[in-house]
């Protein structure tokens, strides 16, 4: 029923996953001393930047971004500006939430903020790409009857997977195993990343298996 969209989605997700892979592997080859644990912040920014660039490019090329009502340059610029603003606000929001969850307030603020940037580029950016800078639409999407297209459902799944992954990633932190990945925020960002990749796989698969039940009333 949604074959075309599902195929587009699967290929998009393949590209995204491949870019994440490349963002991890390429610097490891090119930059001396690069490792996911050792230079974790570098890895985070590398992956975030790649995911941002690739998502924006792919979603723009596919034309999933909601149609703008006006086509003036000023309006487009203001949308762009608002998107950037939302991106920044979302980083601050995630930072606050993570701190409230128990991350150190001052000690490793840079690490926490980098983690917030990663979360933002994995979740908020997708919302921006699919729904545009419209918070009410974001809130609406995350309800049972809120999805209005296959892409909305896909958004629900990937965002939920990423956040749950990050949440589960916090579990090993108190354990006394002394592993390099138990340092804040390594396990959480790895959890978020794994959750994101799982979401990328799960979303097309789930939609494919439930394509008969999926009905979107308004579009």
């Amino acid at each position: 029923m949604w074959d075309h969209e599902i195929r587009a989605m699967a290929s998009t997700h393949c590209i995204l996953a491949a870019s994440v892979f490349m963002a991890t592997v390429l610097p490891a080859v090119l930059v001396p001393g690069f490792s996911v644990y050792g230079t974790h912040l570098l890895w985070i920014y590398c992956v975030s930047g790649t995911v941002v660039a690739v998502s924006v490019a792919v979603f723009w090329l596919l034309g999933i971004t909601p149609p703008t009502k006006k086509h003036t340059v000023g309006y487009k610029l203001s949308r762009l500006f608002r998107s950037c603003l939302y991106f920044l606000l979302s980083c601050i929001f995630f930072h606050t939430v993570v701190v409230l969850y128990g991350a150190p307030l001052i000690d490793s603020a840079l690490e926490t903020f980098s983690f917030a940037v990663l979360l933002t580029s994995l979740t908020t950016l997708r919302c921006l790409c699919v729904l545009g800078p419209n918070v009410q639409a974001w809130i609406r999407v995350f309800s049972r009857h809120g999805a209005m297209s296959v892409w909305d459902t896909c958004l629900q799944i990937t965002v939920a997977c990423t956040l749950v992954g990050a949440w589960i990633g916090a579990f090993p932190l108190p354990l006394d195993w002394d592993r390099p990945w138990q340092v804040w925020p390594v396990s959480c960002s790895l959890g978020a990343m794994i959750g994101f990749l799982t979401g990328l796989v799960a979303a097309p698969a789930w939609i494919h298996y439930h394509r008969k039940q999926l009905t979107y009333k308004c579009k």
């Binding site: 809130i139 609406r140 995350f142 309800s143 049972r144 009857h145 009333k217």
Partner: peptide, 17 residues
Amino acid sequence: LNWDGLLLPPSHDPLKP
């Protein structure tokens, strides 16, 4: 609550049928 669509009033969202 939001998932069940109960957090926001239904009329709040004009897109909602």
